[in-house]
């Protein structure tokens, strides 16, 4: 076996993996343009399901709610997460390692456990289910991602720039806003896009925290799937997956996850 043969085999394998990852998504998208209500082949092109979607108030309301919740979550998580990252980077805080370890539970504990625990707690303190609870939960899930991404960008920041600005008479606030933040801006943008994606795609926590009849889009889709599926679900799913992939493509341009800069 020559090296070139093995390399070709490797590329074929990679192609198969990509097929496995994308084929079902593409099939689902194709079915949203198929006329048959029962997903029957042969394929006949139709935009009927998208037209129906446009007239479906329940789905449109849930979609709009998902979007504005994600925007609010993005603003809150990005602001709090960026502030925490700057503090962790700039100051020699006692117990820094513990603070870093505390970021893992929201990512590492199964969302089923976090979501049900939040439900119990919010009911216990009298807040109950509803959009405010959903936002509080989403921000907590998004925060660790923002902090990790912004911290990664901060590690490329030259500390002496802050010292130079300070020695020229700039106060700590001016240093942060005029020197540090502009440098880490790509990290902040990437962190914000991650936060948006975490909230917009979040199903489990929204499922336990949202009021029935007053839900986010993924929760509505889950309920609809369990009643039986229609190509309308394909249509809205296609829009969602297209939107979140587009967001992540933009985020990747800023964050370069895994890539060397």
């Amino acid at each position: 076996m020559t090296n070139r043969f093995l390399a070709r085999l490797g590329r074929i394998y990679l192609g198969l993996i990509l097929f496995f990852l994308y084929a079902p998504i593409l099939a689902m998208a194709a079915m949203s343009f198929n006329a048959s209500e029962f997903y029957q082949l042969p394929f006949r092109f139709s935009t009927e399901w998208y037209e129906r979607l446009w007239r479906n108030d329940e789905i449109l309301t849930a979609a709009w709610r998902s979007v504005w919740i994600a925007v609010v979550v993005t603003v809150l998580a990005t602001a709090a997460g960026t502030a925490a990252s700057i503090a962790l980077f700039r100051y020699d805080i006692p117990g820094k390692r513990i603070l870093q370890v505390l970021l893992f539970p929201p990512i590492a504990i199964p969302w089923l456990i976090t979501g049900t625990a939040m439900l119990i707690f919010f009911f216990g303190i009298g807040v109950g289910r509803g959009t405010p609870s959903v936002i509080v939960g989403h921000v907590a899930l998004a925060l660790p991602y923002v902090i990790v991404v912004v911290t990664a960008r901060l590690s490329t920041f030259d500390r002496t720039l802050e010292e130079a600005a300070r020695s020229l008479g700039a106060g700590p606030f001016t240093v942060t806003m005029r020197v540090t933040v502009p440098w880490i801006l790509p990290g902040i943008v990437a962190g914000a896009l991650f936060a948006f994606a975490v909230s917009f795609d979040q199903f489990v926590v929204s499922y336990f925290l949202s009021e029935p009849g007053d839900t986010t889009l993924p929760v509505l889709i889950y309920t609809a799937i369990r009643k039986g599926f229609t190509p309308e679900i394909n249509a809205i799913s296609t829009i969602i997956i297209g939107l979140s992939m587009a967001i992540m493509l933009v985020a990747a341009r800023y964050a370069k996850f895994g890539g060397e800069r």
């Binding site: 990509l18 199903f203 993924p218 997956i241 996850f257």
Partner: peptide
């Protein structure tokens, strides 16, 4: 290629599970 491989990871997991339901169902694709 790396981006293509990890892109689905950042899309809605519920929707991806639903896409398998479309592919795998009887008389499905």
């Amino acid at each position: 290629l790396f981006l293509l491989v990890i892109l689905p990871f950042w899309s809605n997991s519920l929707v991806r599970i639903f896409s398998w339901a479309i592919v795998l169902r009887g008389n499905g694709i």
